[in-house]
């Protein structure tokens, strides 16, 4: 694995992650958004693989397939099951229109680059220079959660946030200690499972997953 090859592959994977987060904001149909996020999960796994191979960290290489399976297949599968169980139409509804959310996303990306300048300056290796992308993806995830009306889209937003953090973890410190890594993965899985469970409960109790109905608990 030559150095330039590694840098190109790394930038490709990181680029894919960022682009997928923008397209997730841009798309209208729910099922394609899920597929895009699945692709993003796979890209994060690839980043882990590439870094693992390059810096000969067997532990990281071993983890990357788990990441790919978890973030690429298992979690999106859960989200799909949450969508399928609902009969309502599969359109993306949002508080702010698409161009505005894309504009906001780019603003957040700029913010991510601005705030992590000091972090990148600490040790400017190719992985570290890609950290702002991870944080940008995280912020875009938060934006998606904050602006989407449907429960399922909020789950996707949370998943994107976790993908962003996973990316930051692999780029910054080529993975946290194994115990912590597994703990985080397990917790994300659990959180996703409960979110999906709650979505079905909301559908049964409120008749639909539109979150504007959830306004009964107020002061």
């Amino acid at each position: 694995m030559t150095q330039t090859g590694f840098v190109q592959l790394l930038d490709l994977a990181a680029g894919v992650v960022l682009v997928t987060s923008f397209t997730a904001l841009w798309l209208r149909r729910l099922s394609t958004v899920v597929r895009v996020v699945a692709l993003q999960g796979v890209a994060v796994g690839l980043v882990a693989l590439v870094i693992g191979i390059h810096s000969h960290e067997t532990e990281l290489v071993a983890i990357s397939p788990i990441v790919v399976i978890l973030r690429g297949i298992v979690l999106p599968g859960m989200i799909n099951r949450a969508i399928r169980s609902g009969a309502e139409h599969r359109e993306v509804e949002s508080l702010i229109n698409i161009p505005a959310s894309l504009l906001a996303a780019s603003g957040l990306t700029l913010l991510a680059y601005a705030t992590t300048r000091a972090v990148v300056a600490l040790s400017p290796s190719p992985q570290v220079q890609a950290i702002p992308i991870g944080i940008a993806v995280g912020l875009i995830g938060v934006l998606m959660v904050a602006t989407r009306r449907k429960a399922v889209l909020q789950i996707i937003g949370v998943l994107m946030l976790d993908n962003g953090i996973a990316l930051v973890t692999f780029l910054a410190t080529s993975g946290v200690p194994l115990a912590v890594e597994l703990g985080i993965a397990f917790d994300v899985l659990l959180a996703m499972f409960i979110l999906q469970l709650l979505t079905t409960r909301i559908r049964t109790k409120f008749g639909g997953t539109d979150l504007d109905q959830l306004r009964e608990l107020h002061d």
Binding site: V119, L122, V128, I131, I135, G138, G164, I165, V168, T169, A172, T173, V176
Partner: peptide, 8 residues
């Protein structure tokens, strides 16, 4: 995210 950056 903060914890990971502290770790970094």
């Amino acid at each position: 995210m903060g914890t990971v950056l502290v770790y970094f």
